[in-house]
């Protein structure tokens, strides 16, 4: 099928883009990489009346350090991110996650901001953002506000953005010292949306015990699923096969997979258990290496 007609605007500044958003509200849908929006339009699942193409807004394409935070403009492509030395050095978990998103041809157009704003429960980058305690910058003609990742994702394809706001920037705070990380997923083919995936983060104390942990899952709930109970079980413990298995068991009760033609909920839960143990082992090794 072909997209329904729409009015097209291609502003060349953020100011002009936000003015269109202020004037038309929710009608003024942002067109970022188009790698989720255009398929939906081709099938007429989405029929926006007005598109604001952000590809000409160069001020939304940047990767830079501010203090010890990595700041990334919403229109930075996934391809730019996976080649960024700054990202590799300062946000290795994010860096390691990007190549799991779709195929290179998709990542050449798809953006970080588009993936975060789209909030597909099966998407990798929102999971990385929650695991890393990222903050999202929402801007309107009236000003800006910063929203913690956990509050930003509000369920199926739903985020905390007002009808006059666009997402303009994502900030990733530095990970604490003695922290290890891992991202793992299982997909039927490389580049497909995964049946389950996890971002794990482990911080060790001076004695080698777990001081803090995060376990965040994809495609097993309405958005990124932060298994706080499982992570809490690890705090104060050594990361061992036994403590990891206990965390995996707890996490399997915190997720709520829906199942699909490719994977039953039981199979997704099985994947979550296995991935939790593997990701914790890898994150622990890295935390030890960083100690």
């Amino acid at each position: 099928m072909k997209p329904a007609p729409f009015e097209y605007h291609a502003p060349d500044s953020l100011e002009a883009a936000l003015a269109l958003r202020a004037e038309h509200g929710d009608e003024a849908k942002a067109l970022a990489g188009g790698q989720s929006l255009i398929p939906a339009m081709n099938f007429r699942i989405a029929q926006p009346a007005l598109l604001v193409d952000l590809n000409g807004v160069d001020e939304l394409r940047f990767i830079r350090m501010e203090g010890d935070e990595l700041r990334i403009g919403a229109m930075t492509t996934q391809n730019t991110l996976e080649r960024s030395e700054l990202a590799a050095k300062h946000q290795p978990l994010l860096f390691e996650t990007v190549p799991f998103v779709a195929h290179p041809q998709i990542r050449n157009r798809g953006t970080l901001g588009g993936s975060i704003a789209h909030a597909d429960p099966a998407a990798e980058l929102p999971v990385a953002a929650v695991a890393l305690d990222a903050r999202m910058k929402a801007q309107s003609v009236d000003g800006e506000r910063w929203i913690p990742a956990k509050q930003f994702f509000q369920g199926f394809f739903t985020v905390d953005l007002q009808p006059n706001e666009y997402l303009t920037e994502i900030a990733f705070p530095a990970m604490p010292p003695r922290t290890g990380w891992s991202f793992m997923e299982v997909a039927r083919r490389h580049g497909d949306y995964a049946m389950c995936g996890v971002a794990a983060r482990v911080t060790l104390d001076g004695k080698g015990k777990c001081k803090a942990a995060r376990l965040v899952y994809l495609n097993v709930g309405e958005g990124p699923v932060d298994a706080e109970g499982a992570a809490a079980l690890l705090v104060g413990e050594k990361i061992t096969p036994e403590s990891s298995a206990a965390a995996a068991e707890k996490a399997s009760a915190e997720i709520s997979p829906f199942g699909s033609v490719h994977a039953s909920p039981e199979y997704q839960t099985h994947l979550a258990r296995v991935l939790t143990k593997r990701a914790l082992r890898r994150a622990h090794e890295r935390a030890q290496a960083a100690s």
């Binding site: 398929p39 081709n42 099938f43 041809q105 998709i106 050449n108």
Partner: peptide
């Protein structure tokens, strides 16, 4: 027409992209 098959891949400024998703 939804980015999955790759038959429409072209080069845009030297980079392969889906021409059905632009």
């Amino acid at each position: 027409e939804h980015g999955v098959c790759g038959a429409c891949t072209i080069l845009l400024d030297g980079q392969p992209v889906r021409s059905c998703l632009m």
